[in-house]
Design a binder for these strands. Structure first.
Length: 294
DNA sequence: CACTTGACCTGTCCGC
DNA sequence: TGCGGACAGGTCAAGT
């Protein structure tokens, strides 16, 4: 479940590993994931080199010298793993979660002229890769609708308040998961941010006091920033560009912590269902705001 | 328009 | 041991 910190970690890793590389060819093994006409691959991909890698929300954008870009969404179980010409064989003594590649969940393979490979693995096949002109990336409907990047300086307390004002009747967790409100937050960081800000996920947005939303703004930034420093969170599937785990999950306060004690007050953390998602909460620390008392 | 729910997928786990 | 069903959750389509 790559969210903003995981995708950012992959972006940084791939920037080191493949920017400047020239693409020899692409192997599309699953048309549900990627279905680009081979004539287009020949004309704008083969022989092009990678000029840069960007991220918007949970989307990765790989720019090519030909004026085209790969737009990649990892969804739930997508991975982008690089293997140099010194391929890790089976039993290589590293902490890679991924064995020999390609394997049965490999959907797309990028082959570079220096003999190295980039593998797109996706167990559940929710992810996708599109190839469009670099100019058109910003015109993709999904990207156009995205809300602000939470780690940008432009994302102020007031921006969060304004964005949330459109969803006054929603449960606050549902609003945080809405990519048009704030971009890049998924289930893990929604739960962690709400815990840090001491807001119950079933609170109605319109009932949460303005200063409490200020606390939430700070919590979102803190949680995402810490996770990037820890290389993201590996629950089961996520790996970075080198196939290695992230360690943020060890720092999580509530996510997947049901049955353990709240670090702040000692209450047992419970797991409930909010907005159709498994949700972790300390019912003592996290206040529920419901009536529009404001 | 605002908001909620189900579908898309596959691997894993739990109870019988 | 095998098997059905629930569950995982990012995003979109369809529903209220």
């Amino acid at each position: 479940m790559p969210e903003l910190p995981e995708v950012e970690t992959i972006r940084r890793g791939l920037t080191e590993l493949i920017v400047g590389h020239t693409i020899k060819t692409i192997e599309q093994r699953d048309s549900k994931i990627m279905a680009v006409d081979n004539r287009i691959i020949t004309s704008v991909v083969e022989g092009a080199h990678i000029t840069g890698i960007r991220r918007r929300a949970k989307v990765l954008i790989i720019d090519l010298s030909s004026g085209y870009s790969f737009v990649i969404h990892l969804k739930m179980t997508g991975q982008l793993v690089y293997r140099g010409e010194h391929n890790f064989g089976a039993g290589h003594p590293n902490d890679s979660l991924v064995g020999e590649l390609p394997d049965r969940s490999t959907r797309v393979v990028f082959l570079f002229t220096n003999g190295s490979h980039l593998y797109f693995n996706d167990q559940r096949r929710f992810g996708w890769i599109k190839l469009i002109t670099t100019q058109d990336v910003a015109k993709i409907d999904f990207i156009q609708k995205l809300g602000p990047e939470p780690l940008d300086h432009a994302f102020t307390r007031d921006v969060l308040r304004t964005q949330l004002a459109r969803r006054k009747k929603s449960l606050i967790k549902a609003a945080l998961l809405d990519q048009t409100v704030v971009a890049g937050i998924g289930n893990i960081y929604a739960d962690e941010s709400l815990y840090l800000a001491k807001i119950h996920p079933q609170s109605r947005v319109g009932a949460v006091p303005s200063r409490t939303l200020g606390r939430l703004h700070l919590a979102i930034k803190e949680v995402l920033q810490l996770s990037i420093e820890k290389g993201g969170s590996t629950d089961k599937n996520y790996v970075n560009a080198e196939g290695k785990r992230g360690s943020y999950i060890d720092f999580a306060q509530v996510f997947r912590k049901e049955g353990t004690r709240c670090p702040r007050c000692g209450t047992i953390i419970t797991k409930i269902r909010v907005a159709g998602r498994g949700t972790h909460v300390c019912t003592t620390c996290q206040k529920i705001y419901n009536k529009s008392t404001q």
